[in-house]
Design a protein around this nucleic acid. Structure first.
Length: 267
DNA sequence: CTCCAGGGCAGCG
DNA sequence: CGCTGCCATGGA
């Protein structure tokens, strides 16, 4: 058990913010998080957190995952000092939203599934995929068994042909990316070394990854915080509240986080 | 019944 | 280039 205080972090807000599809609400103010082939139970009481791990795991894994190295207080000040009334309202509503540093492969596959899809169906497909092709994580009996996210070579082709997975028309894209990942084992590490623009270019060469999905992968899987994914909701919100244009220049370097506040508020 | 969901692709002009 | 129709699927 590790205890710590964290500001600008709300488990429920993050769980509902549409960036992670494998968080489970396992109790009052308690979530079970699955990432990097591990599970972690987190309990929140205000800004006090109890994490079901030791201090070494916190320092080595979860501290980074929860984006403790980003200055969220500074972003709060940037918003407060500005004159964007709608953004201030959005921030007041979801100041506990963060951009998690999630597993890159999981983000690639998950956001390919997400295209022209809804969060409930995305969650269901991801869950079915993990259950069928991942392996069980130790000590995950209570609150349902937990599984790792299937890596390349861990998903047989027939899984993509199975209609009950709910992949719909995206199934061939997923089959292709799993094959590409298997044949190009250095791809993920190379992506991690690239700039935002380079990563976008590499991602866009894959079938089923367009501009929006590539931006989500850059933001959630590579932590390129300037990535600003524009989906149907963000497009609507930009039209509604920012018909004169959004001030990307002011929020350069944190635009992706701002986008997430706006997105979460719009939901 | 239609419309929509954290879109992208191919086929046009 | 931009525009359009289509893609599979379940819920509203």
């Amino acid at each position: 058990m590790y205890k710590t205080k964290i500001d600008n972090l709300d488990l429920k807000q993050i769980a509902d913010s549409g960036q992670c599809f494998r968080w489970k609400n396992t109790g009052e103010n308690e979530y079970t998080v699955v990432a990097f082939d591990r599970a972690l139970r987190i309990k929140q009481d205000g800004n006090e957190f109890e994490l079901d791990c030791d201090e070494a795991d916190w320092n080595n894994i979860w501290k980074s995952y929860l984006d403790m190295d980003t200055d969220y207080a500074g972003i709060a000040k940037l918003i407060a000092d500005g004159d964007d009334a709608h953004l201030k309202e959005a921030y007041a509503y979801g100041s506990g939203v963060r951009i998690l540093r999630q597993d890159l492969w999981e983000m690639i596959v998950t956001f390919m599934i997400s295209q022209n899809n809804n969060i409930k169906r995305i969650t269901n497909s991801v869950d079915l995929l993990c259950r069928r092709c991942g392996h069980k994580i130790d000590g995950s009996a209570e609150g349902g068994e937990l599984y790792t996210f299937p890596k390349p070579l861990e998903v047989p082709d027939e899984v993509f042909d199975d209609r009950s997975m709910g992949f719909g028309y995206r199934a061939p894209y997923l089959k292709e990316i799993y094959g590409y990942g298997a044949n190009n084992p250095d791809w993920l590490d190379n992506l991690r070394k690239m700039s935002y623009d380079e990563a976008m270019e590499s991602l866009l060469t894959r079938k089923g990854i367009g501009k929006k999905v590539a931006n989500c992968i850059c933001l959630f899987g590579l932590h390129h915080v300037d990535a600003f994914p524009i989906d149907t909701h963000v497009k609507q919100l930009l039209d509604k509240y920012y018909s004169d244009g959004f001030d990307f220049e002011r929020y350069k370097g944190v635009a992706g986080i701002i986008q997430q506040y706006l997105f979460y508020f719009e939901l």
